[in-house]
Design a protein around this nucleic acid. Structure first.
Lengths: 171, 171
DNA sequence: ATATGATGGATTGTACACAACTTAGTTGTA
DNA sequence: TACAACTAAGTTGTGTACAATCCATCATAT
């Protein structure tokens, strides 16, 4: 289960298959599945707090530091305003955050926590251990996996743009 | 950068912080970022083929085996019909797949490839190496990372349901 | 002071992703 | 046959996610 890249040499009846195009050889597919599987793990637990998964990540960021401008929050979470604006409005509607124009710079919107938002943190403290236990078996596991993921992430987020010429102009 | 779980002991002015709730200690956050970063990598390359990232994964599955029912394709990709139905309709509109009711079981819809769909495969063969090179530096890297991801994925997808009592009834 | 350019958010449009529900067809049982 | 239970897809509604675009505001340079 460790040394082979190729997978099966052909896929039976249908088509000639390059190992490179086998679905199970795509790291991106594994990551997509992992992302959704984690989402599934968090959903019931977060549902009890009235949060979705991305909303939870936004709250984590705000529990670390608030208030924060929408732009800075977006950098922290790697989300753009098109995603963040409606998400934050829903958190505001839920009474967890405030959104106020900055006094100094009227372009900027500061996102702060309400009392309810701060209180919610206490109800969230057990979530990482609940969910974490099904990701990493031990603390060593956790550290190893975190290191591995961070390393890959650095490569992918900071990789240079695609090698110039694509099949056609990318629009 | 390898042995510490805690992260910084506090986050400055704002709040008392448990290491467990630090955003950067959440494996789920790393996975979410990785998922989006990979999406960003694939987008321009796949855009040239007229595919989105999930559509590409669906095509990979169909290039391995076609025709396949919507249900089986969903199992393969871990997607439900609510996601797959419109996605497949778009692929049909794009002229890449066919959707026909199964003769034997009228409930089932068989998804097949058109000539254009089969032809597209040739234009996709270089994609894994383009994108793969920014995920894993070497073949050894690839194999190691794939093993690691598969292991985590098994744990998360097959973990038992949450430990009975959540803060409140889950709805 | 006014034009120029850059910046921060919001908005719009397209595309996943999932829950809940509906519809249609199949199977099991009496 | 009749009918309940089940199954496979589709549909609807909510919530991300991102590109493209718009708008107000700030910085600056003339």
């Amino acid at each position: 289960m460790t040394g082979e890249v190729a997978g099966r040499a052909d896929a039976g009846v249908a088509a000639p298959i390059d190992a490179a195009l086998l679905l199970d050889n795509q790291l991106c597919f594994l990551v997509a599945r992992l992302h959704r599987a984690l989402n599934d793990r968090y959903r019931p637990v977060l549902g009890a707090l009235g949060l979705t998964y991305p909303q939870y990540l936004a709250m984590l960021a705000l529990w670390e530091q608030a208030p924060m401008s929408v732009g800075r929050l977006g950098e922290r979470l790697r989300l753009d305003s098109g995603t963040l604006s409606p998400l934050l409005k829903r958190l505001e509607t839920a009474g967890l955050v405030t959104r106020t124009r900055s006094a100094g710079d009227e372009r900027s919107v500061e996102v702060g926590l309400t009392d309810a938002g701060r209180t919610l943190r206490a109800e969230a403290v057990d979530i990482p251990s609940w969910v974490g236990s099904c990701i990493a078996g031990s603390l060593d596991d956790f550290v190893r996996v975190r290191g591995e993921l961070t390393e890959i992430l650095d490569r992918v987020e900071n990789a240079p743009p695609p090698p110039v010429a694509l099949p056609g102009p990318v629009r």
